[in-house]
Simulated scan of single mutants.
Amino acid sequence: MRVVVTGGSGKLGRSVIRRLSQDGHEVTNLDRTGERGRGFTVVDLRDYGQVVDVFMGLDDRHTGFDAVVHLGAIPAPGIAPDAATFENNMLATYNVFQAARRAGIKKIVYASSETVLGLPFDVDPPYIPVDEEYPARPESTYSLVKVLEEQMAVEFTRWDPELSITGLRFSNVMDPADYEAFPAFDADAALRKWNLWGYIDGRDGAQAVACALDKAKPGFEAFIIANEDTVMSRSSASLAAEVFPNVKVVKDLGEHETMLSIDKAKRLLGFAPEHSWRASYPNRTTPTED
């Protein structure tokens, strides 16, 4: 397919462009900065005219796209003032969704966020592992935008029953170089409780995007995207018992099993994480290996 990726110069975006290109797709990166060439175009996503123009075609480059992967955003709370985060991210996503609709593009995959689950879990989650079944619990302006984006996707797909929009609730994106810091997390179980000790390797995040482009059906669906294990060497059951003693654990947890349930993504998208930090950082030992 001809796929346009917004925010392709970012941490996850680089992995997504690499994966989609390897899969044989013709990929264009829309971002404010990037490597000059035929696969990159400078676009301000806050400007609807720029977005719809490039989606319709670009002289000497392309005549349109088959699918959109929307990753371009201020990527976390606290990077910019709250009002600026709201304005940038909400407007950018509306412009991308609306421009895709006007251009006749029927497949959109975009970055929602694990934050809609209630991060940083200062209020206990309703149960562990968390999943997509309980109502969103935004605790920041950044997360509020993600919730509103998901509702906007519901309405866009209601307007156009042929349109497919997939919201991927990505966990904390990590590259292999980041795994060097993981041993320090073991010193205090509370250090990473804010997202239930979850993460997503950028390469597996890219796999989830590829799966959604291939498998998603018309309508809107949201999926938690995390790796199958936690960032900790301690068992998942012991972490849950210590940090969230009043929260019901609704299944028997594997030794290091994620508490961000990816069962739905596995079942409907065929998502299957391949890059655990435990393999990428071989000098790290776990309690079962001591």
Rank of each mutant, 00 (worst) to 15 (best):
R2T: 08
V5F: 00
T6F: 11
G8C: 00
G10F: 01
L12A: 01
G13C: 05
G24S: 08
V27A: 05
T28N: 02
N29P: 04
R32E: 06
V43R: 02
L45G: 02
D47V: 13
L58I: 13
R61V: 14
T63C: 11
D66E: 12
A67D: 09
P77N: 08
D82T: 10
A83Q: 15
N89H: 06
M90T: 11
T93C: 00
N95S: 05
N95F: 13
N95C: 04
F97A: 00
Q98C: 04
R101H: 08
R102T: 14
I105F: 09
A111S: 12
S112P: 06
L119R: 04
L119M: 08
D124H: 14
P126V: 15
Y127H: 14
A136Y: 06
S143M: 05
A153V: 04
E162C: 06
T166W: 00
G167W: 00
L168P: 01
N172K: 03
M174N: 04
D175L: 10
D175R: 03
P176I: 07
D178G: 13
Y179S: 05
P183V: 06
F185Q: 08
A189V: 09
A190L: 14
R192Q: 15
W194I: 13
Y199Q: 08
D201L: 12
G202R: 10
D204H: 01
D204F: 00
Q207S: 04
L213M: 09
P218H: 11
G219L: 11
D229Q: 11
V231E: 05
A237L: 10
L239W: 04
L239D: 06
A241C: 05
K248Q: 14
K248S: 08
D252G: 12
D252T: 15
L253G: 03
G254K: 10
H256E: 03
T258I: 09
L260I: 06
K266H: 03
R267Q: 14
E274S: 06
R278Q: 14
R278G: 10
A279D: 15
R284D: 04
T288P: 02
D290W: 07
